[in-house]
């Protein structure tokens, strides 16, 4: 079983992705995402004026979750809330870096909640996505 992070081991304000992990926006990653979500948005099949191919805004769900993999709770945890701001779409071929911080830790109705803020930039430091995620932590045995 994959190792997981215990709720009590986290602290508010902790920046836990240092250095921020990288994520390659490849053609294959985008193709798999579009197929699995049945997204046929026309603009994603075109290239920009300078020949770049765009990734869907919600690919953020892939690279942000990938970055947060070092802060995964026990199996059974779920998403409570999600905020994203899409500054611009990522291009195929870009390398993205996501930094993250634990914002808030709290308990409600006997369950643990973890709020995290994320910021994703490309290899040149251009802002791609910012977000906030609230996870309901899985029950620890």
């Amino acid at each position: 079983m994959t190792s997981y992070v215990k709720y009590n081991s986290m602290t508010e304000g902790e920046e836990f992705l240092d250095p921020p992990p990288s994520f390659q926006v490849s053609k294959e990653v985008v193709k798999k995402y579009l197929q699995s979500t049945q997204d046929v948005t026309v603009q994603l099949k075109q290239t920009t004026e300078v020949g770049e191919c765009l990734a869907p805004p919600m690919l953020a769900a892939v690279y942000v979750i990938d970055a947060l993999r070092t802060r995964v709770g026990p199996p059974g945890g779920i998403h409570g809330k999600q905020q994203f701001k899409f500054h611009r779409p990522a291009y195929i071929g870009e390398t993205l870096y996501t930094s993250a911080q634990v914002l808030k830790l709290y308990e409600k109705k006997g369950r643990h909640y973890v709020e995290m803020a994320t910021q994703t930039t490309n290899q040149q430091g251009e802002l791609i996505t910012t977000g906030m995620i609230t996870r309901i932590w899985g029950q620890e045995p």
């Binding site: 049945q38 997204d39 948005t41 869907p56 769900a61 809330k81 994203f84 701001k85 899409f86």
Partner: peptide
């Protein structure tokens, strides 16, 4: 949320992909 994004992309791609915000 990918389905939500499909709706917003169809409705207003430019405004969604460049500066769009989601809070759910």
């Amino acid at each position: 949320l990918a389905f939500v994004s499909r709706v917003l992309s169809q409705w207003n791609w430019q405004g969604w992909a460049y500066g769009g915000e989601l809070d759910v």
